[in-house]
Amino acid sequence: MDYNIAVIYGSVRHHRKGMRAARFITEQCINRDHDATLVDPTDFDLPLLDKMYKEFEDGEAPDKLEQLAQIIRKADGYIIVSAEYNHSIPPALSNLLDHFLEEYFFKPSGIVCYSKGHFGGVRAAMQLRSMLAEMGMSSIPSILPIPKITEAFTKDGIPNDDAYYKRSAQFLDEFEWYLRALKKEREHDTPY
């Protein structure tokens, strides 16, 4: 079964290297016959959170926010691609995610994290895991860390080490299990 997956990238820096990882994981989802959409925060230019999407009257949300809401609502699950800034997540990622809430409920998330150094963004991933759970899209147990992002992929998202194909396949196998399980339960019923 194919699923609709929103791959949410979290950096807005000019020379951001993590887009390489975001392109890679999006392509891996597409190769598995999923409808995967790469969400780049620079395409939506959201202001610092003042009003959540749900706080706008029908038809009153800004066009870019409405476009993003369509992607978020139709997704069966989310893959979050996060850098590590000061041992935490990028502010642009938090801001984008915070514009929504109920749209995420009872859908899984997976975390792809990266850094310029050896740890691959895992410290940010631990903070992100807590945030995603609070938002109703708990993350799967596995993460896909990518150390030395500048060396790991080409600009087009092609790994310089073929081991990333195996690692991403294992990560996506687990993510798909949660996609299947939670979609089945959402179709049956949800607690609220």
Rank of each mutant, 00 (worst) to 15 (best):
M126I: 13
W177V: 11
H34S: 05
P147E: 15
G117S: 07
S11W: 12
R13I: 02
E102F: 12
L182Q: 14
G59D: 06
K166L: 10
K155W: 03
S82C: 03
R123Q: 12
L101S: 11
M126C: 08
H87A: 09
G18A: 02
G117C: 04
G157C: 08
M1Q: 09
P41Y: 00
P41G: 01
D58E: 14
P108S: 11
P62G: 00
P191V: 03
D156M: 01
M52V: 10
I149C: 02
G110P: 10
A36G: 05
Y165P: 04
E185V: 12
G10C: 00
E103Y: 04
I30L: 14
P90S: 07
P147H: 12
K166V: 12
M1C: 02
Y9E: 04
D162R: 07
P108G: 10
H99M: 05
I5N: 01
N160H: 15
L144E: 08
G117L: 08
Y114R: 00
K17S: 01
R129A: 06
L97E: 05
E66V: 11
N160I: 15
H14M: 03
H34V: 04
H34R: 06
P145I: 07
I149S: 02
T42H: 01
Y165S: 13
Q170E: 14
W177K: 08
L46G: 13
Y165V: 09
A163K: 09
I158M: 10
K74M: 12
D45W: 04
D33Q: 13
P47M: 02
H188P: 10
A61Q: 11
Y192W: 13
D35N: 15
I158S: 10
H87N: 13
L68D: 14
P159Y: 11
N4R: 13
E185H: 13
R13N: 01
R20D: 03
Q170T: 11
G157A: 09
I80G: 05
M137G: 11
K107A: 03
R123K: 08
S130A: 07
G77C: 08
H99V: 07
F44E: 01
V112G: 08
N95G: 07
G117D: 09
Q67H: 11
C29Q: 06
C29T: 06
P47C: 00
D2V: 10
P147V: 14
